[in-house]
Write a protein that binds this DNA or RNA. Structure first.
Lengths: 242, 242
DNA sequence: TTAATAGTGTCTTTGAGACATTATACT
DNA sequence: AGTATAATGTCTCAAAGACACTATTAA
């Protein structure tokens, strides 16, 4: 342990970086920006920036989120993901990145922020083949895995929709994030059986779905913060996986 | 977003702080130190210290852990918990604390590190009434809650024991961490039915338990990293809890 | 001998999943 | 009409929980 000396602490900078996920065109997509400043100018990266004096880590993440997506999102879910601080991950100096994970409903086209020349939604499946700046590929992968796990135990799938929503819309969120087809009938009964997951609004859709069928009832998020029992992924033997 | 300027970034320091949990005297206990240096000199706090140049966040946490507990613990589980960076949480300057969570088997008495005058194990139940420095009370509470949740979905209960262990010892870990009695027979069958949770060593204990009973078989941790299906807490209706 | 414990067997209940059915609405 | 969908019903299987039972060991 080093004795504290307020004049000689090692120089460190702290950034808040974001893994913003949404469902677009039947795909899970993450928000990426093209960097306008060095290092890695011209390359794709997660949106983010330095934490400013006087703001909390969460406030910094929320500020970056509104800058990049166009503000005004009370409905966006935002939680801390993890921190990344390997020496050398930023060529300039020691930088600790506190990553946040956001779930957003489908948004209008993204806005490049101050330091970015471009902002776009990249399908989660394409991230493996994209070159991202810093260690952002790993951060994005961690965020996507966290999102998949969170849908099992929390009602956060609703954060990808704009209430009121139908059970079918909720199912499409699950199918898109997990990349697996779910059984419509069983899913329907299951969602309604979990206390506090969704609440009926009493209304129903104006018309049936595009290819026919009856009109469906509309729901809004319920008070539950955890799902009991959880909605487990189908192929999840998982026991022996790393 | 502030344009980067390597000479004018706001001064920030980064610490690695630890929530080290163990099971002692049939209680879940966390490691605390009494601070020898200001600020908060003389008060209780979580062990930790500044991240040094050239070391990863995890290496910093592992270093603090061995300094405080006496080294040589390949068997201790160490994972990142979360980061805490509210302005003003440290009176000296902006300090970001990257907290790590550790699960340890019962250890000899703790060693105070360089900056500490005392190190001791405090029962988790007593933390609510103790005054901890900085925002360490909240960090400790977050760590304990994470530990309780992790026992449900991971085989990490074994990290609180020293292999080989008996099923009864594993059950005592669960009962202590969750603070609830479990049904011995059902727990036994359940643990053995989860693939990869534990593996028999072939050996058994030298004698029966203190108050009688047959000798029990000994096990070691299996290859699983997740429990499928999970071992859910009994009283966990939880759906509507925050 | 008494009591406590390890390990197993059995029964009931609950929930997941496969499949079927009915009513509704789009083409 | 033909087809797709919302919502519900039925059946089967797996797992959790309550309880019982046997064998083994300490006091």
């Amino acid at each position: 342990v080093t004795t504290y000396d307020s004049g000689s602490y090692p120089p460190v900078a702290v950034t808040a970086d974001l893994v913003v996920l949404t469902v677009r065109d039947d795909e899970l997509a993450a928000l990426l920006v093209r960097r306008g400043e060095p290092p890695f100018a011209g390359e794709l990266a997660l949106p983010g920036g330095f934490v400013q004096p006087g703001e909390t880590l969460r406030e910094a993440a929320a500020r970056e989120l509104t800058e990049e997506t166009g503000a005004g999102f009370g409905s966006v879910h935002l939680e801390q993901l993890a921190s990344y601080g390997d020496p050398g991950r930023d060529p300039r100096m020691r930088v600790i990145s506190v990553a946040y994970l956001a779930f957003a409903p489908e948004l209008p086209e993204a806005q490049p922020g101050t330091d970015a020349t471009e902002a776009k939604w990249a399908p989660a499946g394409s991230l493996g083949s994209l070159q991202l700046a810093f260690d952002h590929a790993r951060i994005a992968a961690d965020g996507i895995e966290r999102a998949r796990a969170k849908l099992e135990y929390t009602p956060l799938a609703a954060a990808f929709t704009r209430p009121p929503f139908t059970i079918a819309e909720l199912r499409e969120v699950y199918e898109t994030v997990w990349g697996e087809k779910l059984h419509a009938g069983n899913f329907h009964r299951k969602v309604l059986s979990v206390p506090g997951f969704v609440e009926p609004t009493g209304a129903q859709t104006q018309s049936g779905s595009a290819r026919g069928g009856p009109r469906s009832r509309l729901y809004q998020p319920g008070p539950a913060t955890q799902l009991h029992p959880p909605l487990l992924r189908p192929g999840a033997e998982g026991s022996l996986r790393a």
